[in-house]
Design a protein around this nucleic acid. Sequence first.
DNA 1: AAGAACCCTCCACTGGGTAGAAGCTTCACC
DNA 2: GGTGAAGCTTCTACCCAGTGGAGGGTTCTT
Lengths: 136, 136
Amino acid sequence: MARQGSQSASPVPSLRIGEVARRTGLPVKTIRYYCDEGLLQPKDRSAGGYRLFDEENLAELAIIRALRAMDVSIPELARILEVRRAGVCNCAVLKDSIAAKMESINLRIGELAAMKDELARLLSSWQDCGGSKLQR
Amino acid sequence: MARQGSQSASPVPSLRIGEVARRTGLPVKTIRYYCDEGLLQPKDRSAGGYRLFDEENLAELAIIRALRAMDVSIPELARILEVRRAGVCNCAVLKDSIAAKMESINLRIGELAAMKDELARLLSSWQDCGGSKLQR
DNA sequence: AAGAACCCTCCACTGGGTAGAAGCTTCACC
DNA sequence: GGTGAAGCTTCTACCCAGTGGAGGGTTCTT
């Protein structure tokens, strides 16, 4: 078993990707993908090239995870995280994108409900098809 | 302009892909894609290799269009159309897949509603952020 | 020093199309 | 019968948000 970090002074000096995966519940591949896409910037690399993450990265991943679950796109997330990284209050940005997201969720729910109605109509109109031969 | 079909005896002897696109409202590329995926089998080819469609193809496209709008997947559609092509009553198959679709729509609506609630909670909890400086 | 666990990059694949290139076919009109 | 243009063909590559695997290097424990 490869354990790491013999120091116990600072709480989270540097986490490797596997540990981050364990803590966030995201697959290692996905975290690496987020790095590639510029969403996440590991604070450092080990001498051997391993990505090293810190608590700030964990916080960012929490945001990413939450907003992805709400179908916020990767480019949108990149925008949000960039603003956040700049140290500016990102309430406005977040609020805008969340409001837009709620709007699109409402639309989508409406569409799905309409579909459901249509499917129900279909089903009830076929009530009487016994199942013997063609009606193509 | 390239017009076609000087015969006017049979109502729909053979339509080329562009005309089918016009009648169904689907992009030419999409119809070709459906052919490639085996959903649609043009009744013939011209001497020059053009796909030639008939009314049965139009009916199939109508089904494809309607079910795709309800997020029925391409492989599922292939299954449905195959059964239909076999001349057997496909009520059972359709009913099953429609019932399953309704179930998944219900699930999805539930998920979306939960998301919306969560977003609303987020928004209301940020009510008081004026927008000046960081709170990262 | 060995071995296990971990990590790296690179490439290919998913689904449901969409975009473009290079070249062939069909048609109306002259 | 020639010409122009629209229409069609196949092929390749791209989109999103990852996921899987190959092949090889690093870190840690024993």
